[in-house]
Design a protein around this nucleic acid. Structure first.
Length: 189
DNA sequence: AGGAAGATCTACT
DNA sequence: GTAGATCTTCCTA
């Protein structure tokens, strides 16, 4: 399977968010590989998007949102770390990875986040960060490098895409910027 | 230094 | 469906 390159992320944020569905997110920890199929994403933009971490302008903690596409942006909310991948054509924007369908390293992920049912393992942005042992130490990481600790693989899969408004935001835009695989049981809700 | 907000999760009813 | 826990970061002083 082919690694997604920087050109993939150097496109409109919402298009990249949609196109990430069905791809394989891999988290490497030593020799182990954990991860799964991306089944739910959300796009966040720059200055005109009140739900975005970039809405109030450039700060130290959100700096990577304004930098080169294809890097990780890790942000904390309510005790959990949010895993985002930077993607834009106009200088700022990123995609929240909200849910995975686990396929690799399931035993290791369950050690990181013990659950009874597989469908509870990575069906939410905070859940998948715990399962994949993702925290702020990965902020700014380049996901387009062969040797990266996190990267995304091409994957041929056919499915129907559903959309909705974004989940959990206090001030959302009227458009639909949440994308998910229809009827997939690992979607967060 | 203190208070409040927030892209969440869990455990209830 | 709703309440409460929890912690990083921001804002004001």
């Amino acid at each position: 399977m082919q690694l997604l390159k920087r050109e993939f992320y150097s496109r409109r944020t919402d298009l990249v968010a949609r196109d990430l569905l069905g791809k394989i997110l891999v988290r490497r920890i030593g020799d182990a590989k954990l991860g799964g199929i991306i089944v739910e994403t959300e796009a966040y933009f720059g200055g005109d998007d009140p739900a975005s971490r970039a809405f109030h302008g450039l700060k130290e903690y959100n700096r990577v949102m304004f930098e080169e596409p294809g890097h990780l942006f890790i942000y904390n909310v309510h005790k959990y770390w949010m895993l985002n991948i930077i993607a834009h054509t106009d200088g700022v924007g990123g995609i929240l990875i909200r849910a995975l369908e686990p396929t690799k390293g399931i035993k290791a992920m369950k050690r990181n986040r013990p659950v009874k049912r597989l469908r509870d393992l990575t069906s939410g942005p905070g859940k998948l960060s715990l399962a994949l042992d993702v925290d702020k130490s990965l902020n700014g990481l380049d996901v387009t490098s062969e040797s990266s600790l996190v990267y995304v693989l091409e994957n041929d899969l056919s499915f129907e895409i559903s959309t909705s408004r974004r989940i959990g935001v206090t001030r959302d835009l009227p458009e639909h910027y949440r994308y998910y695989i229809k009827d997939n049981k690992y979607v967060s809700r």
